[in-house]
C-alpha cells in the first residue's frame, strides 16, 4: 500500500464485502440454490476495476480465504479462484471500464466462470465435487445477470462514501 496517502474508505469496502458474504450464506430454497450468484466475486470484480491501484491479488486472496472459512471449503480453494479473478480483472480494467454494460456482463460471466471452474477443480482434488461442472456455471450466469444492479449499487456506495 504505497499510495495510501489518498486512499480512503477501506471500512466501506469491508462492509460491502460483508454484505456480499451475508448474501452468500442466506438460506435459499433448494431449487434456486444452483443459481445463487457469486456475490463476493462480483463485489471483488467491481472494487478491482474501480480501484485497481488499491485492490489487488492480496486483497483477492484474503477475501477468498475468508470465503473458504465461511463456506467450510478447503482453505485456499476460493482464495485461489479469487486471486485469478482479481488478477485478470486488474490486468483488463482499462478495457472493462469503457465497455457498455452488456459487454461488461459477458466479461463478468467469463471471470466468474474461471473462478467457479478453478474452485470446482480444487474441490475435486478434495474429493467433494460430484455435480457436473456445467451446473456450477449457472451461478456464473446469474452473477452476470446481477452484474448491472450490483455495479450501480456499488458505484453509488463508492461515490456516496468517497472511496478512493
Amino acid at each position: 500500500m504505497s499510495r495510501t496517502t489518498t486512499a480512503s474508505g477501506t471500512p466501506v469496502i469491508i462492509v460491502t464485502l460483508l454484505v456480499a458474504a451475508w448474501l452468500e450464506v442466506l438460506p435459499l430454497p433448494d431449487v434456486i440454490e444452483y443459481f445463487r450468484p457469486e456475490w463476493l466475486a462480483v463485489a471483488m470484480v467491481y472494487w478491482t476495476i474501480a480501484l485497481p491501484h488499491r485492490i489487488g491479488v492480496v486483497w483477492g486472496a484474503s477475501v477468498g480465504l475468508f470465503q473458504d472459512v465461511l463456506l467450510g471449503t478447503v482453505l485456499g480453494q476460493h482464495a485461489l479462484a479469487m486471486t485469478l479473478v482479481v488478477f485478470i480483472a486488474q490486468s483488463s480494467y482499462k478495457r472493462m471500464r469503457v465497455f457498455p454494460l452488456p459487454q461488461q456482463s459477458a466479461v463478468v460471466f467469463m471471470l466468474i466462470g474461471v473462478a467457479v471452474i478453478s474452485s470446482y477443480l480444487i474441490q475435486g482434488i478434495a474429493g467433494r465435487a460430484h455435480l457436473p461442472p456445467l451446473a456450477m456455471l449457472l451461478s456464473a450466469l446469474t452473477s452476470a445477470v446481477f452484474w448491472r444492479p450490483a455495479f450501480s449499487l456499488l458505484r453509488w456506495t463508492r461515490r456516496q462514501f468517497l472511496v478512493r
Binding site: 460483508l18 486472496a61 480465504l65 472459512v69 485456499g76 485461489l80 486471486t83 482434488i125
Partner: peptide
C-alpha cells in the same frame, strides 16, 4: 500468491497445521 494458495490447499488437506486460520476467521 497463487503458490501460497496451492500450498495452503495441500496443507489443509493433508495436515492440521492451518486450523488456526479457520478458527481465527471463525469469529467473523
Amino acid at each position: 500468491v497463487l503458490v501460497v494458495c496451492i500450498t495452503l490447499v495441500f496443507l489443509d488437506l493433508r495436515t492440521s497445521w492451518v486450523g488456526w486460520i479457520r478458527y481465527g476467521a471463525g469469529y467473523v
